[in-house]
């Protein structure tokens, strides 16, 4: 948490902290009330209970407030998600093929490798396909995930914002080596990327 590895961290961690904050507040309130009541109205101290059947005002309050909060949470989550679907037109497109139990990344120039190298601060769009069973492309550090499903074209996009090496995992159970369907994404400077790309194409052309 609290990194800046991709452009979605802010939205995802933001909505997480937002809901976490409200939840903690309510959880503490509920728990503290329970504990206080249990002690204060303990049978030894309070042998005679009072039968209070309810209170419509209270019911309305604790229906309306959670509704407002819930709709707020929904909106926050949906707002972040909308950004996740709106891939810029100029995004750098890479095709991802998922198969048991390996990721293949094909660059626009036709080069296919088994790990991902992307330039920093440039939108990248991944077109995700599966050729056998369901998989799910997951980069925890970037807060992004998309299932790879046979007969279906999915995509996701992101802007890597920090140099480094991050894990790519498969998040949808896909059989024996599901846990080992693992790869890495290298986020590098544009110059490094260009140089690396050049080297690779030379290699391929040989």
């Amino acid at each position: 948490m609290l990194t800046n590895a991709s452009n979605f961290i802010k939205e995802v961690d933001g909505v997480f902290l937002f809901i976490l904050g409200i939840s903690l507040l309510l959880l503490i309130m509920i728990t503290v009330l329970m504990v206080i009541f249990v002690f204060k109205y303990n049978r030894k101290k309070n042998p005679k209970p009072r039968n209070i059947k309810g209170n419509t005002t209270l019911e309305i309050i604790w229906t309306v407030i959670p509704t407002v909060l819930a709709v707020g949470m929904f909106y926050y989550g949906w707002y972040g998600y909308k950004k996740m679907t709106a891939a810029p037109k100029d995004a750098y497109e890479i095709n991802v093929i998922a198969k048991m139990w390996k990721w293949d990344f094909t660059y626009p120039n036709g080069v296919t490798i088994d790990s991902l190298v992307v330039p920093i601060n440039k939108p990248v769009k991944l077109n995700i396909k599966s050729i056998d069973v369901n998989h799910s492309f997951f980069i925890p550090a970037f807060r992004i995930k998309k299932d790879a499903i046979p007969n279906k074209d999915n995509y996701l996009w992101f802007i890597p914002q920090e140099k480094g090496v991050y894990d790519i995992l498969c998040a949808e159970y896909c059989g024996l080596r599901h846990a080992y369907m693992y790869s890495k994404i290298y986020v590098v400077h544009q110059d490094e990327f260009d140089e690396w790309m050049k080297k690779l194409s030379v290699k391929i052309n040989q």
């Binding site: 979605f8 949470m73 926050y76 989550g77 972040g80 995930k145």
Partner: peptide, 19 residues
């Protein structure tokens, strides 16, 4: 319930789904 709410939020769900 609260962690369920977290999964209801779309952007956050994408991250924590299947984890």
């Amino acid at each position: 319930g609260f962690t369920g709410l977290m999964q209801g939020a779309l952007s956050l769900n994408i991250h924590i789904h299947d984890t």
